[in-house]
């Protein structure tokens, strides 16, 4: 039972990771956000993010969040998928900060709820509750904006946009290679897990399990080192000298979205 749960969780994590990295299904759709040129979109979303982190009023954050949900709908993104993709990150970012902030120990103020747990008396304050809601809404809206940008823009366009904003080419190239190889490593881990399962079955003593996991981590580390060396050799072989030169638009990379000039005309 527990093995089945772990297996489903692991495969779910791999599948989610691969999907997050590789899915361009929504970016290929014809929707509101897909229509906006990547550079303009990045600029708009950067301004929205600054606004969201600056706002101190929860009601305004509700409006921002509602706008995100509407943008998702008008961009052809399945609402269930969008909420799942967004809210899966919220506990990661906010759980350890928002929950303690509820209590009077960290946020003194007017009592909202009082309860006893293991002989200790806990008080949740109105001020703590408001602070926690503000924090969670801020995180939820920020994550929603990032997810929207990521889902509706092709990775190549996003990376190229970074370059336009003056981020050094070597950084953009390293980032794009990370993106490329995360997928490969997710696949390696998934295959390794299936390989282990095919040989040891499902019932495994936890100590043996720990041993296998430790060995796989070491193995993966070694493979990443090896891949690192091989990829560098492949780059050298094709004339790389430490200063990457990349494809410019003059060679015909086309965006599905209209160009800045076309946007102005439209």
């Amino acid at each position: 039972m527990s093995n089945g749960f772990i297996e489903r969780s692991l495969l779910g994590v791999f599948s989610f990771l691969k999907e997050s990295v590789s899915s361009e299904e929504y970016a290929a759709k014809r929707g509101l956000l897909q229509f906006i040129e990547a550079r303009v979109k990045v600029l708009i979303f950067a301004c929205l993010l600054i606004a969201v982190v600056s706002v101190r009023n929860t009601s305004i954050l509700y409006v921002f969040y509602s706008v995100c949900v509407l943008l998702a709908v008008f961009s052809g993104i399945s609402l269930g998928y969008f909420l799942k993709r967004t809210w899966v990150f919220i506990p990661l970012f906010s759980l350890f900060i928002a929950i303690p902030a509820l209590f009077s120990v960290f946020t003194p103020g007017d009592t909202l709820v009082t309860f006893q747990l293991a002989g200790a008396r806990f008080i949740i304050t109105w001020q703590g509750f408001d602070g926690a809601v503000l924090f969670v809404m801020r995180v939820a809206t920020s994550v929603s904006l990032v997810v929207l940008l990521n889902l509706t823009t092709r990775q190549t366009e996003l990376l190229r946009t970074l370059r336009i904003f003056g981020i050094p080419q070597i950084f953009v190239m390293t980032l794009s290679m990370c993106y490329r190889y995360i997928y490969l490593f997710a696949e390696i881990i998934e295959h390794a897990y299936i390989g282990i399962k095919s040989r040891v079955g499902t019932a495994l003593h936890y100590k043996k399990g720990q041993h296998i996991v430790a060995w796989k981590i070491a193995n993966l580390w070694e493979r990443s080192q090896q891949l690192n060396e091989e990829v560098y050799n492949a780059m050298l072989s094709r004339g790389y000298t430490g200063e990457p030169k990349v494809l410019e638009r003059s060679l015909g990379i086309k965006s599905r979205a209209p160009s800045l000039k076309q946007n102005r005309i439209l």
């Binding site: 990775q155 190549t156 990376l159 794009s176 290679m177 993106y179 490329r180 190889y181 990829v231 492949a234 780059m235 094709r238 004339g239 790389y240 000298t241 990457p244 030169k245 990349v246 494809l247 060679l251 990379i253």
Partner: peptide, 17 residues
Amino acid sequence: FCPTVKEDIVFGPLQLG
């Protein structure tokens, strides 16, 4: 190692100027 096939194909010639 590039994000797209097109960028991979032109990587070599670009580096060689």
